[in-house]
Design a binder for these strands. Structure first.
Length: 225
DNA sequence: CACGAGATCAGCT
DNA sequence: GCTGATCTCGTGC
C-alpha cells in the first residue's frame, strides 16, 4: 500500500515529459528523447517502452526532411504544428514511421523514433503478439522504425494526435535523465539523396543497446548541449 | 552473414 | 514512371 499524500498526488505516478522539450529544435530534442518512456494505449492495455534510438529531421534546410524547402502537402502538414504533435507516415507502401514533431508552430522539425525497448516482460509479450513474426533477437522486435510501429500497432490513424496529453493513444513520460546515459551519434540511415546533409551525425542511440537497429562502428560520443 | 527481390503507396525533395 | 526516413524471406557462401 502506497502512502497517502495530502495533496492527492502519487509521487510514483509517471509524469509526462516536460513541455519545454517539444519546443527544442529537433537536433537538440532527439538525444534528449533517449531514455524517455513512450506509452501506447491500446484496447489490450498500455504498452510502455524506452526510446533507445532517434533521428533528427531539422527544418526547411535539411534535404533529408520531408519538409525540405518548407514543402507543405497533406503528408507534411503536421510537421508545421507546434511541438508535441504525432507525425506518422507510410514508407515503401507498407511500413509506418513514427515521429515527434518539435519546435514552434510553422517550423517543420521532427524526430524519427527508430528503436524502442519494452519496459517489462508484459510489454514485450504484447509487442510480440502485434509483431506477428519470429523474434530471435531484441532488434527483431522493435529495432527499426517500421518494426516498432508494427509492434505498437501504430498507423496513420494516430497522425495529428499529441504526445503531451495524459489519455491520448500515444504519450511520452519522463524516464531517465539523458545526462546519465551513454549516447552516441552517427549519420542517419538511408538518405543518400540528402546531399551534404546525408553525412550529418543526426542519428542518436544508446551505445550497446541490443534494440538499436544498426550499430555504426564510426559512431562518436554525444555531449548534450 | 551477404546479397537480392518483392511488397505497394505518396509525392515527385 | 520512379524512388524512398523499410522489412521479410529466399538463395548462396
Amino acid at each position: 500500500m502506497k502512502p497517502n499524500h495530502s495533496d492527492g498526488v502519487d509521487p510514483d505516478a509517471p509524469q509526462l515529459l516536460q513541455p519545454e522539450l517539444y519546443k527544442l529544435p529537433a537536433v537538440e530534442a532527439a538525444p534528449r528523447l533517449l531514455g524517455q518512456h513512450l506509452v501506447r494505449r491500446t484496447e489490450d492495455g498500455d504498452i510502455r517502452c524506452r526510446i533507445v534510438e532517434t533521428e533528427s529531421y531539422g527544418g526547411a534546410e535539411d534535404k533529408g526532411s520531408h519538409a525540405y524547402g518548407s514543402r507543405r502537402t497533406a503528408r507534411t502538414e503536421v510537421m508545421f504544428s507546434a511541438g508535441g504533435a504525432v507525425y506518422v507516415y507510410l514508407i515503401y507502401g507498407m511500413y509506418h514511421c513514427l515521429n515527434v514533431v518539435t519546435a514552434a508552430q510553422d517550423e517543420p522539425h521532427a524526430v524519427l523514433i527508430r528503436a524502442v525497448e519494452p519496459l517489462t516482460e508484459r510489454d514485450a509479450e504484447l509487442m510480440k503478439a502485434y509483431r506477428g513474426v519470429a523474434v530471435r533477437k531484441p532488434s527483431d522486435l522493435s529495432g527499426g522504425p517500421g518494426k516498432l510501429c508494427r509492434a505498437l500497432r501504430i498507423d496513420k490513424s494516430l497522425n495529428h494526435s499529441r504526445f503531451d496529453l495524459p489519455e491520448g493513444p500515444l504519450s511520452i513520460e519522463q524516464g531517465e535523465d539523458p545526462e546519465s546515459l551513454d549516447i552516441v551519434q552517427a549519420p542517419r540511415i538511408n538518405i543518400p539523396y540528402a546531399g551534404e546533409y546525408a553525412g550529418r551525425p543526426w542519428r542518436f542511440y544508446l551505445r550497446g543497446n541490443p534494440y538499436v537497429s544498426v550499430s555504426d562502428p564510426q559512431a562518436q560520443p554525444h555531449r548534450l548541449v
